[in-house]
Simulated scan of single mutants.
Amino acid sequence: MSILRELLELEAAGHDDRKLRRAAAALLDRQFLHAADRGAAQHYHLLVDDRYWRYFEGLFDAIGRRLVRNEGEQWVGLLPDMGLYPDLAGALPRMRQAETLLLLVAALVYQEKINVGEVEQGAVVRTDTGELFDRYATLLGRERMKDSEFRELLGEVRRRGIVAVGEADEESLDFEVFIRPMIKLVVSADVREALRQFAGEEERMLDKMASDAPPEAAPGAATDPEAP
């Protein structure tokens, strides 16, 4: 009833509830909205407006989401109410495994650059698809995929407002990627550490496999089991 009461009061004060509902729908679809994104500014300003904050808080609380904002960094977002879910997987938007791994790698790159002071206005970190691509392949022990496939993976993280993609370099053709600070809310420090451990374990496993493998036959050596 409190949501309805808030809405009725807003309508009585002459506010357009259709704009409020469109803003709520845009945020629910994307998870995070940044004021700099195309078409997002009007929704962002409504969502962070103190006149409407209680209404939006109640609306999203009713569906198990916690509304968060940072006006200094100019973003607003939704996080799961973890008290309602037995595990994190049930609370977060569905993503393919490869997209989830890319999100983890982006969080790791973000924290590493923050640690050395490579941060821009709004706590944004600048990298590019080439660096992310290399870290993804190296950390996870995966073969390099096509650039088009990698950019497709990046698309879901971009759609959720966690990164923005800029211009392409004329020589390398790598695109600028701006990793935003809300990634710290989506990927916690313990998850980033787990990724580091995973990468280390996989590297040790590959080294062990290489050391345990039988020596290759010398060039020109006989391969017939009955040969002397």
Rank of each mutant, 00 (worst) to 15 (best):
T127F: 15
R151A: 05
R126G: 12
N115L: 12
G155L: 09
I114G: 01
R135Y: 09
V105D: 04
G117W: 09
G122T: 07
I162F: 00
K146F: 13
L140V: 01
V119N: 04
A107D: 06
Y136T: 00
K113C: 04
Q121L: 14
G161M: 01
G155T: 06
L140P: 04
G155Q: 10
E118P: 05
Q111H: 11
T138K: 08
V124I: 13
Q111C: 13
E143Q: 11
T138D: 09
L154A: 10
D147R: 15
V165M: 07
I162W: 01
M145G: 09
Y110G: 00
A106E: 02
E131R: 12
F150P: 00
V165P: 01
V125H: 04
K113H: 14
R158Q: 13
R158L: 05
R126Y: 12
S148N: 10
Q111M: 14
R126E: 15
I162R: 00
R151F: 15
M145R: 13
G122V: 10
F133H: 14
L139P: 04
V163R: 07
L153I: 03
R159Y: 11
G141Y: 05
R151M: 14
Y110W: 08
L140D: 01
M145I: 14
A123Y: 12
R158C: 02
L154P: 06
K146H: 11
A164M: 08
D134E: 13
A107Y: 00
L154R: 02
